[in-house]
Amino acid sequence: MSNLTDKDPIFGDAASSDAVELVVVPRTADIGGFTVRRALPTAKRRLVGPFIFLDQMGPGEFDRGKGLDVRPHPHIGLATVTYLFDGEIVHRDSTGVEATILPGAVNWMTAGRGIAHSERSSGEFRTRPDHRGLAGLQTWVALPKTHEETAPAFHHHDAATLPEVVAGGARARLILGEGWGAESPVATFTDTIYAEITLEAGSSIPIDAIHVERALYLYEGEIEIAGDSFEAGRLLVLKPGDPITVRARTSARFVLVGGEPMDGPRYIWWNFVSSSKERIESAKADWKMGRFDKVFGDEQEFIPLPE
């Protein structure tokens, strides 16, 4: 997902909790009739661990005959991680991959030195008589300097391959990394944590401090941390070194993201991430001049370089 360059998140509610360092309120934009909320990056926080970008897609429902149409566009220096709560997306990319992602599965696309991809709804999705809903998260993971120019690649992991930990009214699914005694099968380049957590009202879950940088993105419901409550549509950047307990005031769903700090600052422009401004300039020129490989099965359209 892209084209929200003028919709940066804003600094949110003052955090009274000693456990919360920063609260970010995402900015909302309309992408072809579909609502997107951007929580990262923001002026006050560029990265949380390797995560440099976090978008909430929907929830929303398309009219009959309509669907998601994100035309082919490029990336460098990052890996995209797509995770759905509802609906489906057909992914196509310039490595020749076509894959349909469904709720609970993971698409991990390594851009490395350069990849182009598109994200669209299938014809079957557009013509369903009853339900054409779509909701989920797209995150970008910045690559370490040693792997910024790695070969582009794509990996899909079905929902059944991701471990779940259930205790009382709490459930945690390990999308990336490890926690609560479980480990995701998705390979990452640095120490990374990404988990989907659901809580029944009144239940709680511990969040340890093993990972240096951590944040919670509250997708739905209301939670409490150390006596302070937070509502949906907030990114809560946690203070390092402090284990916390999250309790649900209502039924709630949120994700935990984070990991080790990056090996230096990252620059981000449109869909490009790099430790070098010069590398971003060369990627801009490559896309403008058509030097990226075409997207398999989606060769006719593309998103032009923003001027």
Rank of each mutant, 00 (worst) to 15 (best):
R45N: 13
R45Y: 01
R46S: 06
L47E: 12
G49D: 00
P50C: 03
P50K: 04
P50R: 10
F51V: 13
F51Y: 10
I52M: 11
I52N: 14
I52V: 15
F53A: 00
F53T: 01
F53Q: 03
F53V: 03
L54G: 05
L54V: 13
L54Y: 04
D55A: 05
D55H: 10
D55L: 06
Q56R: 15
M57V: 10
G58Y: 02
G58S: 01
G58M: 06
G60D: 09
G60P: 03
G60F: 08
G60I: 01
E61R: 06
E61K: 07
E61F: 04
F62I: 03
F62Q: 02
D63R: 11
D63V: 03
D63P: 15
R64K: 15
G65C: 13
K66I: 09
G67F: 08
G67S: 11
G67D: 04
G67K: 06
L68P: 13
L68G: 08
L68F: 09
L68N: 05
D69M: 14
V70M: 15
V70H: 07
V70I: 13
V70G: 02
R71E: 12
R71F: 05
R71L: 15
P72Y: 00
P72A: 08
H73C: 13
P74L: 01
P74M: 02
H75T: 08
H75Y: 13
H75G: 04
I76Y: 07
I76S: 02
G77E: 04
G77A: 04
L78N: 00
L78A: 02
L78M: 15
L78V: 09
L78K: 00
A79Q: 11
A79G: 06
A79M: 06
